[in-house]
Design a protein around this nucleic acid. Structure first.
Lengths: 205, 205, 205, 205
DNA sequence: TATGAATGAGCCTTCATTCAT
DNA sequence: CATGAATGAAGGCTCATTCAT
């Protein structure tokens, strides 16, 4: 990917996160990125293809979360989940604008093929986590719970705090200027909550 | 609210859920609702005011979830939470299109004033739940956990399964045609999971 | 003409004077006159016919200016002109909104038939004045000047001060809040100027 | 100013003169100028900004009428006025469509800021003429008359003949097809009338 | 490779008018 | 007689995209 393309994509993420796909005009984007209006079509072919390119480019951070763990056989299942939580929270906090964009997309029924490719990117992680949980259950370390729905609880918690700053601040009783995603204390608090939830819920006794 | 207005709003919810606010044109909507294009502006003044009217009209289902419980002093805290879960899941399954629309809105930074009014509608429920949890903790019935984040887990789980059918089916290993929101078994499964999660996580021993 | 019709016409004059024919919407007018939107079409048939009715109704003040004088044979030509100036200035000051409306119309090439009827209302006065001037010339009382263009100077002076308050105030070095048309001193000043101009220009010696 | 912009403005003047600002649609204009409907907004930003650009561009002819004279100290006051009359009549005959447009604007209360800028363009000439007249009076060459109202008579005469061809022809007893503004004889006649009027009215004896 | 100019399609909205009562 | 509801047409404007250079 050339510098110019990456430059455009970085500004596209910002705008898409703010205004959505339909709400962002190529002229907005060109102005924000300080490039010619024809550049987007020149480099990417169309607004939609720019979006796809952005997804492909930015989704990288989602990969590799699991791979690291599967190599390390010395870890127990609960340790693996702890690592995943830490890794996930860190990565999502750093990529929260893009994260918001792909969740906008999942909420719509436009551009279905794009939805499929997003799901193809996201779901391997879910599957891997499910495998870990099922292994824990099979080993008798974990209680017999509903793995898919526990994963929904896990991801849902992330998303609930990440997707709307206003809602998050309301829940936390913070003033509207507080940006939880830039506060290391909040990050630790979220990680602690999720670990505690999984430990308490999954581990026997 | 007149029949005509309600008729338009009902079709508007469908289209907004599918395509988002910017992605839905008044012409689309007029065609879908089989009314004249000028009707939306005639009845609501503008596309944006139609949206607001829709939110006010449809948000009714969110009210009253909590009020019912606060009257009943015979219930313990965990029983209250159980009732809330049941009530919430039922109501959200029935209003899932609208639910999707307001979550689209929370993801964007367009129309901020509308966001505020959505939050004003949604948050009282969260606050009420937080009060119940904190009361349980104070009474020594519940473990000392992080109430706001537990609520995020609770709502997050709902949203995670409700907001994207595709993602939900992927998680559940269902085929793409399965509509979980119309399957009573799935509804029960979700309710059971959430009750189990809260019971296990909150109750001592 | 019914009271209702006259009521509407009176508000129509105000709005047309302010915003012009195309710039005034029937909804504006209905709101201003506090009648139903359908009333204009109900009473007048269309917006254009309302305009025509307004012209016919309001043009009455222009009639009779000359008739009064032609009866009185005891007046000299210059005395007749003096009377006409007084009468004209008084009537136009009282009907300046309508006066502005018909001059808007004369400036456009829309609604040509209406222009004709306006001219048919206005021109008899000009013709009568021309006759007076030509009689004066024939009698040797007036200098031999160009009657049509002198009439242009006469009407042109009226219009120049009447049609734009801003322009008028600029010329008079008044502040923008001054309303010359409501100041009796200004009226006298205008009459004096026109009389002086005609006397000096027309009378020999 | 690019050729394309000027091309659009030239057709805009025609249409605005014919139909007024509100009566002229961008689609009309695009068709007349044989350009795309989006061109007006592309070049000027909006219909209103096109209008302003037109005023700025076309008003040039009004400037410089006076400046020429103020340099020449050898001219007497009455000679200066004679030159001004000639210059004004010539320029206004050549720009009569635009002249009509700005007088439409002065008649309305829409777009007040534009009115101000028109007055700022027009009034310097009036002020300069007033100075000449007042100087003449002070020197004892001119009779003591009412300068602002004499200027109203001067400009009013121009406007009276220029603004409505129909009215003008009626006054002159010409048939409706006669176009006075293209007849050099009429131009001379107008100039002669105005010079005669000013000479007779202003000069002592 | 890069871009300013240009465009057709579509947007939301307002319009004068008509209709059913 | 009067009016609230409803409508097709047209309004100004913005859009993603294409084109000539």
């Amino acid at each position: 990917m050339t510098d110019k393309k990456e430059h455009i994509i970085n500004h596209a993420v910002e705008l898409f996160a703010e205004k959505g796909f339909e709400g962002t005009s190529i002229r907005d984007l060109a102005a924000r990125a300080e490039v010619n209006v024809a550049m987007v079509n020149y480099y990417f072919g169309s607004k939609e293809k720019l979006f796809e390119a952005m997804v492909q480019h930015k989704a990288a951070y989602l990969k590799g979360i699991i791979e690291e763990l599967s190599k390390d056989n010395s870890l127990t299942e609960i340790e693996k989940l702890d690592r995943i939580i830490e890794s996930y929270v860190n990565k999502m906090f750093n990529n929260r604008l893009f994260h918001r964009v792909i969740h906008q997309e999942l909420l719509l029924h436009q551009r279905e093929s794009l939805q499929d490719s997003i799901i193809n990117i996201v779901s391997p992680n879910a599957v891997a986590i499910k495998n870990i949980i099922e292994t824990g259950i099979r080993k008798g370390v974990f209680r017999k719970i509903d793995p898919p729905l526990l994963i929904a609880s896990l991801f849902g918690t992330f998303n609930q705090v990440l997707l709307s700053k206003k809602m998050c601040n309301k829940l936390l009783d913070k003033n509207p200027d507080y940006i939880p995603y830039e506060d290391p204390k909040f990050k630790k608090r979220l990680i602690d909550h999720l670990k505690d939830l999984l430990h308490t819920y999954l581990l026997k006794n």
